[in-house]
Write a protein that binds this DNA or RNA. Structure first.
Lengths: 175, 175
DNA sequence: CTCTTGTCATTCGAATTTGTACCAAAACCA
DNA sequence: TGGTTTTGGTACAAATTCGAATGACAAGAG
């Protein structure tokens, strides 16, 4: 099937007005919110957002512990990055490293008592920021839609192989 | 008015299930998406997302130019961070610095011809990623809701003073 | 006009992140 | 069992980010 003469060379499907507005606002909001969260945590407890997320994730696990690689994957952070941050948290006594019983190579990051207290002390202020600038601005329906949107996006990315991106869904190549 | 005995000491309003799910999914999606975007841009054109955003913002301005501070504010990046990135882009010939006519101190970041071409070459792949993992997963209604959500959040944060955050809206202090 | 204060951009140092290289240990396989 | 391939975590170098300090210029008060 030949292409008619009057189709553009590039078949890029650009964003329409609504889509572009949504994307731009999303990027802006994300940067602003990250900054607010970072500020609050820093001044309120000396933690970075990355560190807070580590403590939070660990606190949800039975025994407050998790393998390094598993933790890195859940936080969507590089392994070396996690090694660094666990080191920082260990220095502050909020986390300890323990040997993994089932795997000689493995290392468990373990939340300490102090870590638990720090988290409990910090969480209210953190939640307050998330509420003040995001959640409390939305109707319950909007919150629910946001959950759906972000869940779908997350699922899409976790499904697709992370390497070189396949920009277009399976179909005949242009030519 | 005395507090009844059976209210908790901390009056933190925690996130309910839907709110928590929305927030967690948002954080995860944001990290994953940032990673995808970064990968695509890097392998596709050697740009970082930060650099792409600079080029994109400049391209929307008449003359493809903007003052440094103004640009930093719009991108929600520190001035020193922008100085660094403009340096990188200048090194690659995608941007030039020019003196500001109206203010001796001012510096204009100006998009070059090469910068325009680079942007035009890179944009399709970038849009493809945004579509593949976010926009195309959503109904038009969801896109619109996302726009509203993110616009409201952005407005809230741009309105509130950036310094030490006032965690709770005006009201009596706990005591 | 002069002084004081505020703004613009850069430089510098500190902190953080990522990818690659590496070693130890596990998993696999003939 | 002996050898090969993966996997888990860390060490290291490179890149990027921010905040504070700096120097030049602008703006306002007197």
């Amino acid at each position: 099937m030949n292409k008619p003469y009057n189709v553009p060379v590039s078949d890029t499907k650009w964003l329409n007005e609504s889509e572009m507005a949504a994307w731009v606002a999303y990027v802006a909001a994300t940067h602003l919110l990250e900054r607010r969260v970072e500020d609050q945590l820093k001044t309120d407890s000396g933690l970075t957002h990355a560190q807070y997320e580590i403590l939070a994730k660990l606190s949800q696990e039975p025994g407050g512990q998790m393998r390094m690689t598993e933790l890195a994957n859940r936080l969507i952070v590089s392994k070396s990055g996690l090694t660094y941050q666990i080191g920082q948290l260990e220095r502050r006594g909020l986390v300890t490293r323990a040997a993994c019983p089932s795997d000689e190579r493995g290392v468990l990051a373990v939340l300490t008592e102090e870590g638990v207290r720090c988290l409990e002390r910090t969480a209210p202020g953190h939640v307050a920021v998330v509420r003040a600038f995001l959640i409390d601005r939305l109707t319950p329906e909007e919150v629910e839609t946001m959950r759906q949107i972000m869940t779908k996006a997350t699922a899409a990315m976790e499904a697709a192989p992370a390497g070189p991106l396949r920009a277009r869904p399976p179909g005949k190549s242009p030519g």
